[in-house]
Design a protein around this nucleic acid. Sequence first.
DNA 1: GTCTACTGTATTGTCGACAATCCTGACGAC
DNA 2: GTCGTCAGGATTGTCGACAATACAGTAGAC
Lengths: 231, 231
Amino acid sequence: MSRPSEAKRPTNSVERAYEALRAMAVRFELKPGERLNEVEIAKRLAMSRAPLREAMNRLATEGLLTFVPNQGFSCRKLSASEIASLYEVRADLEAAGARAAALRARRGELEELDAYWSKVAASQATTPIETLVARDEEFHLRLAALSGNRERVRMLENINARIHFVRRINLENPARLRESFAEHAGVLVRLLQGDGEGAAELLRSHLALSAEEAAVVIREGLARIYAESVA
Amino acid sequence: MSRPSEAKRPTNSVERAYEALRAMAVRFELKPGERLNEVEIAKRLAMSRAPLREAMNRLATEGLLTFVPNQGFSCRKLSASEIASLYEVRADLEAAGARAAALRARRGELEELDAYWSKVAASQATTPIETLVARDEEFHLRLAALSGNRERVRMLENINARIHFVRRINLENPARLRESFAEHAGVLVRLLQGDGEGAAELLRSHLALSAEEAAVVIREGLARIYAESVA
DNA sequence: GTCTACTGTATTGTCGACAATCCTGACGAC
DNA sequence: GTCGTCAGGATTGTCGACAATACAGTAGAC
C-alpha cells in the first residue's frame, strides 16, 4: 500500500539504488535523455554495478528510465504526448475510483481525508512547494485508496512518479494552486453527500484543467526542465 | 507499440531470460508461491545469474513475480481480490478507451479491426484455446490502441499478462466463448455507428461478466491452477 | 512426543574482472 | 569541406567467486 509518509531505511543495495535514482528521475534532477554512466553512479552510491543495474531495470519498466541495448540506461525524455496520455489515463482511473469510493468508503474514512485536506489547505501559504506537491499526490492517492482497489493505487503511483515535475510547475502558479485546492475540497463535499457521479465529474474536469495547463507549460517551458540539472 | 504477433530474437541474455520467465509466469507454468532458484534457472537458460536477476527485477515490478529480500523471487500467488481489482481497472481503462476511440479512430481503422475479428470468429471452432486467448487479448489491445493513447495500451498489456490464466479458463467454457465473441462484435457495431458511449457500456458489461465468471472459477478452481505445474 | 539450539548446506547478495560493443576524434581520400 | 575509415578509449554485457543470510535436519532437554 505504501503510505506516502512512511519511510524505512533500505538495507540492501538494490533498494538503496532504487530509491536514490527514483528520487532523481522523478524530479528530473537528471537531464532528459542524459545517459547514465553505470560505473560513475555505482561509485557515487558506493556499490558495484550489479545491484545498480537491477534497480535501473526496475525503473525502466516503470517508465522512469529508458533502456537501449548496448547503450545502457538514460533518463526518459519529456514528451508532450506522453504527458497527455498519462493525464488522460489518470483521469479515467481517478474518476472511476471516485465513483467506487462513493459506494465503498465508510463515512469515517471520507471525513478523515477531508480533515487531512483541510489541514493541508490551512497551512498552504507557509508550505514549501515541493511539500505541497507531495500533499497533492497523497490526496489523490488516498482518495483512490478509498475505492478499495489496490491495483488502481499502484497504477496511479506509477503515473504520479512520471508526472511529478509537471505537477510541480502547475502548482507553482498561485492562481492555479488556489483553484486546484478548492477543487479538491469540492470533490470531498460531493463524496460526503454520496454523490459519486458528481465527484467523478468534478475530478475529471479538475484533471482536464491540469492537463491543459501542463500542455502549455511543456510547449513553452521545456527549456526550463532541460536547464534544471543538478548534476 | 509491440504488435502482439511480431517476434524478434532477443540477442542479449536479459531479454532472453525476460521472455522465457514471462511466458512461464503468464501461463502459470510455475506453481503459485513457488520459489525460483536462481542458479538452477540460470543453468537451464545457459547464462549467469546477473542477467537473470535483472530480468526477474523487471518481472517483479510488473507484478508477475514477487520478491522478498534474502528470499529471492517467487511466482506470484493467485489472489481473488487481486484479480477482481485488475478486472475493475481494466474495465475502466477499456471503457474510456472505447469512448476515445469513437472520437479519434478513423473509419478505416475500425473496419480493419472488424475484419480482423470476423476472421478470428470464423475460424474459432478449429483454433486451439491458447491461440484464442491470444486473439482475444489482441482484440482488446488493438481496440485500446485506437484511442491513440500509448500509455493505456501499456497498462492493459501489463494487466493482460496478469490475468491471462483466468482469461483462458473463461474461454474454455464454450457457452461463454460464444457470448464473449458476440459481445466483441457488438462493440464494433456500435463503434462503427459512432456510438462510443454504447460501445463503452457494452464493453463494461462484457468485462463485468468475465470478471464474475473469473471470481467463480477462482473460488472453485484454485486447485486446478495449483496443480497445473509443468516444472 | 514436542520444543529448542545448533550446525552444515543451500541460496541469495555483492563484488571485481574480463569480453563485447559502442563512441570519439584523428586521419586521409575525394 | 564532406565523407568514410580506423584506432583507442570508454561503456556496457556477462561471468565466476566469495560473503552474508536463510533453511533443513539433527540432536538434546524436558
